[in-house]
Each structure stands twice: as C-alpha cells, then as structure tokens.
Simulated assay, not measured.
Amino acid sequence: MVTITGVHLPELLPDDVMTRMRFAVSAERRDASLRFQRQQDAQRSLVGELLLLHILRERYQLDADTLDMGKNSYGKPFLTQHPHVHFNLSHAGDWIICADDSAPVGVDIEKVRPIDFAIAERFFTSSEYKLLLDAPEQKRLQLFYTLWTLKESYIKFVGKGLSIPLDSFAVQLVDEHTARLTAPDPKEDSSGGWDDHRSQSCFFRKINMDGHYQLAVCATRPIGPRPLLMLDWSELLPPEHFI
C-alpha cells in the first residue's frame, strides 16, 4: 500500500533540538548537515532522514542500526538488504514528504512561486505547453506546478534522474486528482524515448495542499483518495537521554 507522510517545520529549530537530531542520524547525514550555510537546509536534511527512519521502524519494523543504504547508478537511494521496501523523499519550503510502498514510488513537492513560463516551453511537451497557455491566466501558475510535480514524481519513480528528458513523455490530467502517462508529439520524440516510458506501468495522484504548495505521487498501483498522513516534527526526535 502506498503511503505518503508529511512533516511541516517551523521556520527555525532551537540549537539543542538540532543537536539531538544530529545524534540520531547517520554520520554521513550529520556531517552533511554541518556543511550547510543555511539552517533551514540543514534541518530539512536532518528531518528528512529522521522521517524515513521513523517510517522504516514503525511501518516495516526495521532497526536503523542494521540498515545498509545504497544508491543506484543515478543516485536514487535504496535499502540493500530489503529490496521489498521502496521509498522516496522530497522537500520544499516548510515541508518534508516521504512516500513508501513495497514497489517503486516517486514523490515531488514544490513551493508555488512566480516563474518565467518560458521554462514550460523549454521542458514541457507541446501538448502540455498548449494546455498551460489555454488555461485562464489566474490558474496558469498552479497548473504549471501541477504538471511539473507530476512529471518530477514520474522521473523519481523510474529512478533515472535527469537522464530522462522532461519532454520525452507527457502527463495528461484525468480529473482534479489523477493523471496518466502519455506519448509526446511524434516530432518531439526523435530519439524514440517513448518506447522506454511505455513499458512503465504507473499511476499518478495529485494531493491537494494549501495554495502555496503542489504535491504529486507516482506509483505502480492506484494510490486512491486517502489524505496525506501528517506527523509533528517533534514526534521524530529521539529521547533526550539518547545523547
């Protein structure tokens, strides 16, 4: 069953909380968090790993001390000793999101900010770009992020990162919450990349959040209309005696 879990963070966490978090994550994550120049980036990194460890412990009964994390050739992390457990993390602004399942899954969250729509002309297929231009002006920005997060969630689902051009496939909106993978315009598929995408059986889900964020999930099975599961960031903290 696909599960999507979210954590909303305050603007800044106290120093003692950051210290507790660093003692509860991997040495690699701890060291990386100390290299960030902005505290917001450091705490998103720490909370992301703590959220994943919480899910693996509570949902899969896996002990963090015994986990061996690897990465595929494109950089997507996986559990080397538990191939049946799949997960994907995304963060933006004040949110950290983790999707997990027993099969591949991808998730993307983006903060809605003003953009130059030339980005869409460059990265979207002609059908997606036309859909965007035909939309009422007041809805165009939200639609851009709907399409962008759906496409990013698919790329993360496949696990091949930026090696997949965003215009080598299209997402077609079915209704307010779902979409389907479709072929680009034949003129745009000169490399024949659509054949690789066609072999991927996947389902999309757009999850409604407030107007400041867009969230999309891609998985191997229908995700259904259940809401995002919420955790308070304090639930991820180790006990004080842990350090």
Rank of each mutant, 00 (worst) to 15 (best):
F87Q: 01
D100S: 15
V105M: 09
F87T: 01
E137V: 14
D116R: 15
R122H: 15
E58Y: 00
L62E: 05
K111L: 13
R113D: 13
Q39V: 12
P83W: 13
A64T: 05
P104G: 09
S126W: 04
F123Q: 10
D116C: 14
L133Y: 01
I115W: 11
F123D: 11
E128V: 10
G93D: 07
Y74N: 02
L56I: 00
D65L: 11
H54I: 00
S90Q: 04
Q142A: 14
A103S: 14
I109T: 11
R35C: 12
S73K: 15
S126F: 03
P83Y: 06
L52W: 02
R35H: 08
M69K: 05
R59G: 02
F87A: 04
L50K: 08
I97Q: 06
T125D: 10
R57K: 14
R35P: 00
L89F: 01
A118L: 12
E110I: 10
V85I: 10
L50P: 05
F117I: 11
P114Q: 15
D101Y: 11
H86I: 04
D68E: 14
R140Q: 15
F124N: 07
L62I: 11
R38M: 12
T80H: 06
A92H: 06
E137S: 15
T80F: 01
D94V: 06
K139G: 08
D101I: 04
F144N: 07
P83D: 10
S90I: 00
H91W: 06
E110W: 08
K76Y: 02
S102G: 12
L141N: 11
Q37C: 14
E110F: 08
D108Y: 03
A92K: 08
Q40E: 15
L79Q: 09
Q61T: 01
G93N: 04
A92G: 12
L79K: 04
H91I: 07
I119F: 11
L34Q: 12
K139S: 14
F124P: 07
Q81A: 14
S90Y: 04
F123E: 12
P136E: 05
Q39E: 10
G93S: 09
S33N: 02
V105K: 03
D134L: 13
V105P: 09
D41K: 07
I96N: 09
D68T: 15
Q81Y: 03
S126A: 12
A92I: 06
F78G: 00
L34T: 12
L147F: 13
Q37E: 12
D94P: 02
L132G: 09
T146S: 11
E121S: 15
D63I: 05
K111E: 13
L150S: 02
K130D: 15
R140D: 04
Q61A: 15
A103C: 14
L89W: 01
L89K: 00
D116H: 15
L79T: 09
T149R: 05
T66G: 01
R59Y: 00
P77E: 04
A92S: 15
T146K: 15
A135S: 14
